[in-house]
């Protein structure tokens, strides 16, 4: 975990208020308010950003609270995080427990133990996670999804006040392949869905479903092929 090798050393804090650039480094807590850049990799115990910030390097933090717009120009590792607003990661994203409300983009793979998200996301690589809860407000895409449990729901638009940030498409999840043990999908378009217990809800358009234990299909769902595997 972060900072364990520096137990004896007292780490500095980084505080930014207003419009300011700051250097990267190893910090105890990072507090950013306003607009600015951090010109290098950041490693910290806590990371709080309010406003619009860019980290021009990797970000590694145990705890993150982020409101506003944050861009990370490298890989991000966030053990525990809550993000409201827009988050862009240009590398990989790793973490334990994340909650993201808003729009988030990850250019490479995502590896997270549990994630809860409301809004929209774009993951170019693989979303590999334990527990995933997705509430769709806008078009969301992932290259591939591999999970233990995944639940996709569509929320009514009226609850959402940042609508203008989202591409005005139907709230829908698109992925090439979705694989997992427990899959509970709604408004999802995928070429292949493979799982143990699979629920295909309304608005789904799936090319092929492979399942082991059971398949529950909503009458309004479109499924090309169904295959039951194994015992």
């Amino acid at each position: 975990m972060t900072g364990s090798e520096n137990k004896t050393e007292v780490l500095p804090n980084l505080t930014v208020d207003g419009v300011c650039n700051a250097g990267g480094g190893v910090y105890d807590s990072v507090n950013l308010d306003g607009v600015g850049k951090v010109t290098g990799a950041v490693k910290s115990r806590t990371f709080r950003a309010n406003g619009q910030f860019k980290v021009l390097g990797n970000l590694d933090t145990t705890e993150m609270i982020c409101e506003g717009i944050l861009t990370v120009r490298g890989d991000a590792h966030v053990a525990e995080g809550k993000i409201d607003g827009m988050l862009t990661i240009e590398g990989k994203l790793g973490g334990e427990h994340l909650e993201v409300y808003g729009v988030w983009k990850v250019k490479k793979d995502c590896e997270i133990e549990s994630i809860k998200t409301e809004g929209a996301f774009f993951i170019d690589g693989l979303l590999n996670a334990g527990q995933v809860q997705i509430h769709l407000h806008g078009l969301s895409k992932a290259g591939e999804i591999g999970v233990e449990a995944l639940r996709v729901r569509r929320l009514s638009k009226s609850k959402w006040n940042l609508l203008r940030l989202i591409p005005k498409f139907n709230p829908e999840l698109q992925a090439k392949v979705i694989e997992g043990d427990e899959l509970d999908l709604e408004y999802t378009t995928a070429e292949v869905v493979r799982g143990n217990r699979v629920t295909i809800g309304p608005g789904c358009n799936i090319g092929r479903v492979e399942y082991r234990a059971e398949l529950i299909k909503h009458p309004k769902a479109k499924v090309g092929e169904e295959m039951k595997l194994g015992g």
Binding site: A129, G130, D181
Partner: peptide, 15 residues
Amino acid sequence: ELTGISYGQLYRWKR
């Protein structure tokens, strides 16, 4: 099929 493990386990071990 051969090992009897699930997708979830495989992805978990990869993580």
